[in-house]
Write a protein that binds this DNA or RNA. Structure first.
Lengths: 227, 227
DNA sequence: ACGCTTCTGTCATCAAAGTGTCATAAAATG
DNA sequence: CATTTTATGACACTTTGATGACAGAAGCGT
């Protein structure tokens, strides 16, 4: 559970609050870099890749949400928590709309802020919990194992990748081209038409020998989807 | 701008609050399923795959956070927003620790809740499905399925492409040449005059057997348009 | 490196689904 | 009313998917 070397950037013009935050975050084990304005943050983000931004809404010069909107505009997807003294609904909405992921009003409860940070990092960072589920199947990516109703089912490498691709994109019809690229690799030339059919068939038979579950549904002329 | 068809599950024992939430969420375009207790939610989640859970902390029987902890334990990674009347710090922490992603205290500001939902869905990478609508038809391009009045209608590949072309270009009269290029491909030689007629006919009959809806209107000497 | 096991691509065949063609009826046009 | 265009049902053909068998390829332990 210790992975708290995440890098966090704080932009906050009130120096005492900035220090308070730095203190608490450092204590929690985060790598913290504070800024008093948004001025040099963009350059900083080019070099480092912080896992989270904590941004005051009321910054001198460039407004906090403007800054975030701008960063989103040039492609940064870093999670953002806004801080604000005010609690106007309009501001709240604007903050979210411009790409904020969470919002904390000053004066804030430190504990709550820490928890929100943790939740947000969990959700965004290694958000991949290592287990994927579909119906009664559990795909454990750590061990690369499949469990169906608590029962372990051995899959070959290809079968695992194939099933993973389907579960990852559940609800979608996966076209043959997509499967080919995703599972076999886009460099695979001389790809035989029926390779996918056969692979799916084997997988299907392995995870549902009696065929009663109907995991894979063929979409005629297109591909397959989970059913 | 309708893309909000994410599925949301609410577990809340106070019926009036549940209704209020259902109302607001449905109004925003989400697919909502409400539960008064956590009892049947697990089974439900095996079948559907909701994009988000909104869970009251104070449920009768199994406590809200216990339920979430349990779901996390068996592999579900669905984002969770906790609701609570209380604002005890201990509860807050427990909620986050047990896998909550956000936390809203009752009485809550509806607007804020909506914004938090949006932010969380965005962050958790819910693939917003691209669905096309025309009258009572919903064409889901992810799953390649057609729904008419909530009812699923199976289409063949050709039929799907054909209908898609029409819905994509609703309001326009599609000329035969255009349809031929778009649906059959511009390389199709020896193209029989009546092929389009027959194809449209079959499609028409499949999606509106009684012929009362009049989806396809022939434009004499030109082609067809949606009606 | 060797032999053994397992995995995976290819092929042949069968079955099923989809689609084009044709003949004829119906509708629209002027 | 004659002509052109579209509608529709029947039938045949084509395409696609399923499946079992086989063989080459890859991985494994010795």
């Amino acid at each position: 559970m210790e992975k708290k070397n995440a890098e966090i950037v704080i932009i906050e013009d009130e120096e005492d609050i900035l220090e308070l935050l730095e203190y608490h975050l450092a204590k929690e084990g985060y790598d913290v870099t504070g800024f008093l304005s948004a001025d040099n943050v963009e350059r900083f983000m080019e070099e480092e890749s912080p896992a989270l931004l904590i941004v005051d809404r009321n910054l001198p010069g460039v407004e906090g949400s403007e800054f975030v909107a701008k960063m989103r505009g040039i492609g940064y997807d870093t999670p953002v928590i806004f801080l604000t003294a005010k609690d106007k609904e309009g501001e709240l909405e604007e903050g979210f709309k411009r790409g904020g992921d969470d919002y904390v009003t000053k004066p804030f409860n430190t504990k709550e802020l820490m928890l929100r940070i943790e939740a947000l990092l969990r959700r965004s960072g290694v958000k991949q919990s290592d287990k994927l589920r579909y119906r009664d199947m559990i795909l454990d990516n750590q061990s690369r194992e499949l469990y169906i109703d608590e029962r372990k089912v051995d899959l070959t490498n290809l079968e695992y990748r194939l099933l993973y691709t389907f579960v990852k994109n559940a609800q979608q019809t996966l076209q043959r081209d997509f499967l080919r690229d995703e599972v076999w690799g886009d460099d695979s030339d001389n790809f035989h038409d029926k390779t996918i059919n056969v692979a799916i068939n084997r997988l299907k038979k392995k995870i549902d020998p009696s065929g009663e579950k109907g995991y894979f549904v063929p979409v005629w002329g297109v591909g397959y989807k989970l059913g």
